[in-house]
Simulated assay, not measured.
Amino acid sequence: MDGLDLALLPRLIISGSGLDPEPIARQAGIPVWALGTDHARITGDCYLRAWELVEHGAERRDIALLIADGYVVGALGLYDYLFITAPTLWDGMAATGTYMNTISTNWRFEPAEETEQDISFTVHLNTGAGRGADLAMQFGIAGAFARARTATGRPVNPVRVAFRQPAPRRHDAFHAFFQTDRVDFGAAADTVTMRKSDLQLPLLGADSLLASILRHQAEHLPPLPVRTTWLDEFRRLLRDSLVTGPTIDAVAARLATSPRTLQRRLAAHGTTWRAELDRVRRAEYHRMRPAALNSLARRLGYSDARSLSRANRRWQTG
């Protein structure tokens, strides 16, 4: 099975490039609506294709390093917060390695050679090749150091970085970003070597209680290989809108579309707004049934308990 990535990844790189996201998403095979979500999954080849399109559109061979340099920690959601709430840089890296599936099933990091002062890590892209894979690897490694520098408040730099990809014409951008002359290309594996003293640096956002809560959340997430469809995302947004009062205008806006287009897409899936609203309310009613009736009515977006009671009678007879 091809690797899967959260749509957070292409959203981060497209927004970091400053390019118009819609044409890039369409050409990469990514539904435009997915870029507005934190939960949609895409195939790994779509993410790599987005990298190729971003480089072409930006006309910068160093685009992966530029986007990594502007990477705001937190943009990758739970994955980032698992890192920054850990006590040390080593613990943060261990957390993101353990819970890599919160962002992608296509990557893994493994410890490799070790000396008294240094330790090396091998970075694997499980599936994918070509220029998109090269750029994704550049960003994957550079982004890790951008995040480490932000999280520690210190200039964390590698001892050595080695890429399997062919050497670019100029290495200046790599030396400037990584702050080392030891950036090699054409290597046997993608590796990065770090100082053990850097790995012991405390993280500024360390929070043992929050870290424990986030790890629990990561452990109980549904498996990433279950892909999110447009209808799945619509139903999630509809469910989230119940408390504030579900309207087709509001949900359409969250999907970056018009109410009329939303109705057409629902019809193409063999359903309607009214049927979906009823389905979601019914499912939530049974899930939250122990709650008091008035409270339950409000949480399901009904005006009062009588409206909920009428709906419940209809569900039971329907």
Results as ranks from 00 to 15, higher is better:
Phe163Met: 10
Arg164Trp: 09
Arg164Ala: 08
Gln165Lys: 14
Gln165Ser: 15
Ala167Trp: 05
Ala167Cys: 14
Pro168Ser: 06
Arg170Lys: 14
His171Glu: 10
Ala173Val: 01
Phe174Met: 06
His175Cys: 00
Phe177Ile: 03
Phe178Ile: 00
Phe178Trp: 04
Thr180Asp: 00
Thr180Lys: 06
Asp181Lys: 10
Asp181Leu: 10
Asp181His: 05
Arg182Cys: 01
Val183Trp: 01
Asp184Tyr: 08
Gly186Ala: 01
Ala187Trp: 01
Ala187Cys: 07
Ala189Ser: 14
Ala189Glu: 15
Asp190Met: 03
Thr191Ala: 10
Val192Trp: 08
Thr193Val: 11
Lys196Phe: 01
Asp198Trp: 12
Leu199Gly: 10
Gln200Thr: 15
Gln200Lys: 15
Pro202Val: 09
Leu203Cys: 03
Leu204Phe: 14
Ala206Asp: 10
Leu209Trp: 15
Ala211Tyr: 12
Ala211Ile: 00
Ser212Phe: 14
Ser212Asp: 07
Ile213Leu: 14
Leu214Pro: 02
Gln217Tyr: 09
Ala218Ile: 03
Ala218Phe: 07
Ala218Ser: 05
Ala218Gln: 01
Leu221Arg: 10
Leu221Cys: 06
Pro222Trp: 11
Pro223Leu: 12
Pro223Ile: 04
Leu224Pro: 04
Leu224Gly: 06
Pro225Glu: 01
Arg227Val: 13
Thr229Glu: 01
Trp230Leu: 07
Trp230His: 03
Trp230Pro: 06
Trp230Gly: 00
Asp232Gly: 02
Phe234Pro: 06
Arg236Gly: 08
Leu237Lys: 09
Asp240Thr: 07
Asp240Val: 04
Asp240Met: 06
Ser241Gly: 05
Val243Ile: 13
Val243Leu: 15
Thr244Cys: 09
Thr247Gln: 05
Ala250Ile: 09
Ala250Thr: 14
Ala252Ile: 03
Ala253Pro: 06
Ala253Gln: 11
Arg254His: 05
Arg254Asn: 13
Leu255His: 00
Ala256Phe: 08
Ala256Leu: 12
Thr257Met: 13
Thr257Arg: 02
Ser258Lys: 11
Pro259Val: 09
Arg260Thr: 08
Gln263Phe: 09
Arg264Met: 12
Arg265Leu: 13
Arg265Glu: 13
Leu266Tyr: 09
Leu266Val: 02
Ala267Gln: 14
Ala268Thr: 05
His269Tyr: 11
His269Leu: 11
Thr271Asp: 04
Thr271Gly: 08
Thr272Asn: 02
Arg274Asn: 11
Arg274Gln: 13
Ala275Pro: 02
Glu276Asn: 07
Glu276Pro: 02
Leu277Ser: 04
Leu277Lys: 07
